[in-house]
Amino acid sequence: MSATFPHVLLDALRTTRHLVVFTGAGVSAESGIPTFRDALSGLWERFDPAQLATPEAFAEDPTLVWGWYEWRRMKVLAAQPNLAHHAIAELETCVPRLTLVTQNVDDLHERAGSTEVIHLHGSLHQPRCVACSMPHGTLSSAPGEPEEGRRLEPPRCLHCGERVRPGVVWFGEMLPESALQAAFAAAQDCDCLLSIGTSGVVQPAAMIPQLAAESGAVVAHVNPQPVSVHGPREFSLEGPAGVVLPALLDAAFQ
């Protein structure tokens, strides 16, 4: 299997001092988590996900939006980390330093054993007050039966009494500055970066692989579809992350 991977990439993984792993929706999709590109089904199919994921939608119809996000959260809690999540967690034991940056709002990386995950788009499991931004940590962490189309009244903030909102970044909102700057700094410091399951077109997160490449790092994109590369130290590895990553670890470290 090692012959299918570029020697430059294998050598970079074996000798890296700082590896960055950058993941997108494709990784979670392999665990059955719907992406925003997937059409909604059942009682949700009449809604556009992009129209539910906005501050305006929550202000206009909070029970609809909260019900949809609780349905999504239950889907996540019922899902399990896949082979890609586990391979990324194993990578932490193979290299001196690993920084994991994700665009996903689930906790599958953490459940697979990854530590110190930078969540660029927030988390379904960390809701906060819509007014004072105080964290609200009393939601159930046990998977329940997702109820499609069910409206739910959002809980109230224990600090100020306003509604609690999902702890994700909605369309039209800025990414959390501290997370974004930490991701940029890691990309500029690393000597190898794996970009996994992301289209690489959503800004500003798409700058992360670009910054790594500009800083001289070896960059590999793992995606079912080919990714355009620019230069001899950037590679496109085609295939499901749950297949490619375990094989890559075996080739580099076994």
Rank of each mutant, 00 (worst) to 15 (best):
Q181V: 12
G172V: 03
C132M: 05
L158E: 15
R17C: 03
A241I: 13
R17W: 08
A12K: 11
L19G: 07
A241E: 13
I118D: 07
G167V: 08
P55V: 05
G122S: 11
E162H: 15
H136F: 15
D11M: 04
V20H: 07
I196L: 10
P224D: 02
V164L: 09
V164A: 07
D107H: 02
E145F: 05
A251T: 10
V164W: 07
W71N: 13
V65L: 14
Q181E: 15
M207H: 14
P55Y: 06
S41A: 14
R163E: 14
V101W: 09
C157Q: 02
Q103H: 11
L194M: 06
H136N: 02
M174P: 00
A142Y: 04
T93Y: 01
I33D: 02
W68Q: 05
N223W: 09
S133W: 08
E238D: 13
L175S: 05
P135S: 13
L91H: 13
L13R: 01
A87T: 12
A79I: 10
S2Y: 00
E90N: 13
S178L: 14
V130R: 14
A87G: 15
M174S: 15
G231S: 04
P166A: 12
A217M: 10
F184V: 12
H230I: 00
W170P: 03
Q210C: 00
E153S: 14
R37H: 11
H221V: 09
C157V: 01
P154R: 12
G172D: 05
W71R: 08
R73Y: 12
L120Y: 09
W170Y: 14
L211T: 00
P135F: 12
P49L: 10
A182F: 01
D250V: 01
V164N: 04
V219Y: 08
A241F: 12
V164D: 05
L194N: 06
V227K: 13
P143S: 10
H230Y: 08
T63V: 01
V101T: 13
A217E: 10
H119M: 03
S199V: 03
F171K: 06
I208K: 03
G67A: 05
H159L: 04
P143D: 11
L10W: 00
C157Y: 01
G161I: 06
P155S: 11
N223A: 09
R151I: 01
F58E: 02
L98W: 01
S178V: 15
M134W: 03
A57T: 04
A79F: 11
Q203P: 00
